[in-house]
């Protein structure tokens, strides 16, 4: 879990709430990559814009935030999900899982390591349903437990576990076939 959170989160949050830019940079560098990868896999090219909107919302509400590190992470991803759903409605399109072909488009002139990450994320949700993909991504990229994912999506922990199990089994089969 340490790769998702900040060890001295309360202090960093407090400093950021007082207007410390360095503390805000720590928060941004910690949570932005996972959020951006999550949004990229769901939205494609619009992910950057939606992520920027999320951070604008975070900066506005940061001073009033009360909670621990998990709450903060959940707040960021929940905001991202809401923005994503808003974009779906605006575009009147259904969410689509990024295909392998889109990875090149997403990465643009990204370095090879970025390309590798984008490919890995795309492979993680390949062949999964929308619900399965979201659960897997929230668990992998967001670092949430099954219960926390259930809280985010408004489902029970057991339901999340079942869906997640089916998704990973399907993914394992798919990877075996590829291998």
């Amino acid at each position: 879990m340490s790769q998702f959170g900040i060890e001295d989160f309360p202090e960093i949050l407090q400093r950021a709430q007082r207007g410390d830019e360095a503390a805000f940079r720590v928060i941004y560098r910690t949570y932005h990559p996972g959020l951006l990868r999550f949004l990229r896999s769901r939205l494609g090219a619009d992910a950057e814009d939606v992520a920027a909107e999320v951070w604008v919302s975070v900066t506005k509400g940061l001073s009033k935030f009360v909670g621990d590190e998990i709450d903060f992470r959940a707040w960021i991803f929940a905001t991202g999900r809401r923005r994503m759903i808003d974009l779906y409605r605006r575009r009147a399109v259904r969410p689509q899982i990024a295909q392998e072909a889109d990875v090149q488009e997403l990465s643009g002139i990204a370095p090879s390591e970025q390309l590798e990450i984008d490919e890995a994320v795309a492979a993680l949700v390949e062949g999964l349903t929308e619900e399965q993909a979201e659960i897997v991504l929230l668990r992998v990229l967001g670092g949430f437990s099954a219960k926390e994912v259930g809280d985010l999506l408004g489902k029970s922990e057991a339901s999340i576990r079942v869906t997640q199990h089916r998704a990973l089994a399907k993914l394992a089969e798919h990877l075996k076939d590829k291998a």
């Binding site: 950021a16 932005h32 990559p33 951070w55 370095p111 390591e113 970025q114």
Partner: peptide
């Protein structure tokens, strides 16, 4: 791989976020 640390490409918009902050 999906959980890899942030790349410079991903953090390109950091300054914009800090400006908003």
């Amino acid at each position: 791989t999906a959980q890899a640390p942030a790349t410079t490409h991903e953090l390109a918009a950091e300054d914009l976020a800090v400006a908003a902050f």
